[in-house]
Amino acid sequence: MKDARVAFGGVRALDGVSLTVQDGQLLGLIGPNGSGKSTLLAAISRMIDLSSGTLTMEGRDYTNAPAHLANALGIARTFQTVRLLRTMSVLENVMLGAQAEWVRRGPLATWLWLSRARREEKRARRAAQQALERVGLKDLGRRHPQELPYGPARKVEIARALACEPKLLLLDEPTAGMSQAEREEVGILLSELSKDGLAQVLVEHDLAMIQRVCNRVVALNFGQVIAEGLPAQVAADELVREAYLGHRDAGMEASAPMMEIGRQ
């Protein structure tokens, strides 16, 4: 992402942000509310258009591609608020991620290649089940999203994103509202994924978590990058402390996990 700008009305939500994420890198994105973190993820995933700037994925420019093509390039994401489809079972939700490639061919394809469609269906089901197992929810496939507590529902979103077999995973406050134990689990999962070579961008308010799992951190304020580097460096940055923590001269432990439900 180069020199990206996004403006809503007169407000510059993103003002010249450039960001690169390498394979296996787990990039933490921090900044106060309204600093542009979610906007940045939305721009990368092609949910919103850039006013200027370019987006590239493995050398391919996808600045103007529709969202589903960004997904096809290997970009998957979770959302700040749970966006599971209540009309489907958990497994079906995850399968929706797993079938991305095929679905692009549309309804007629099923009728024309029935046996192939059936094979695909089986493959997607297996992939979805694996993804659920990966997040530790292997027995919840038949339930419906609305029956799940908040924590597991968020994990289903992660599973759904993983089922897309992404190269870049965008996580918008995945642990918000989770218990301490659940947060630990997610932290471990993200670290493992990172070791497997997956590039990730993690938006998180829990700075302890950022410290623990990220190998690089970018701090945003007013749509601009104000600091970048190793977690410890950024945490020590004066600008960051001022912007993020206000004038309270508090340490990292002050950042208690916040409930951010339905803020979007």
Binding site: M47, A67, H68, A100
Partner: peptide, 11 residues
């Protein structure tokens, strides 16, 4: 919107 982000060609 979510469907599109999951790779469904909405149009």
């Amino acid at each position: 919107v979510t469907s599109g982000l999951l790779g469904v060609n909405v149009s």
